[in-house]
Design a protein around this nucleic acid. Sequence first.
DNA 1: CAGTATCCTACATGATACTG
DNA 2: CAGTATCATGTAGGATACTG
Lengths: 114, 114
Amino acid sequence: MIDYNGKNYVCRLDFAMDFIRGKWKAVILCHLYKKPKRFLELQRITNGISQKVLNEKLKELELAGLIHKIAYAEVPPKVEYSLTTEGRDLTKILKEMENWSIKYYPHLEVSLIQ
Amino acid sequence: MIDYNGKNYVCRLDFAMDFIRGKWKAVILCHLYKKPKRFLELQRITNGISQKVLNEKLKELELAGLIHKIAYAEVPPKVEYSLTTEGRDLTKILKEMENWSIKYYPHLEVSLIQ
DNA sequence: CAGTATCCTACATGATACTG
DNA sequence: CAGTATCATGTAGGATACTG
């Protein structure tokens, strides 16, 4: 049993997995791997996430220390999100998850609707 | 957009992560890493999972090809769960998740309860 | 452009009791 | 021992409208 930040985990893996729990966090991290991205860019490429949830997840990721947020003092506003070292390390592991799926499911059907 | 088994994924990572989505699947896989385990053993060590959910998750993991189930024809019944090659490969990545958390959170507080 | 606020729904999980 | 069935609940996520 692990207690952290008022949350409760049955083991260390449970704790680790909590950083990327849900449908979107891992996807967002991977989209930030190559280069920083703006809010709207992220929303477009993550393909289906709602504005509300994207914001929630970005906040959680920032609070967890996995991403940086830089808000430029411009009009219209410009905000950029990027990976921290910690987040980059984690995202490398997510890339391995992708590779695992390529190994065992090389021929995934990709639908035309997109 | 990826379609697979009637499910819908926004990208390959989303597809891969679906194999271990939720609180329990990753934990179960890791518990099977060293050696096969029986149902009750699993329930004891996963510390808090309900019987119903453990069964659901084991079924899903088996259907996904990540674990094997062997039922011995004995009374009382004896059933053993073990990792497939595919599942073992995936679990290795989960171990890296654990290592990541050890690197960045070396001193997790462990509560006395349990 | 980058958010926030409100309301709603579906689903994952828990609790409990029962069975071959 | 290893399940299944039933019911209840919390929360993640979606839809939509609004704001600095």
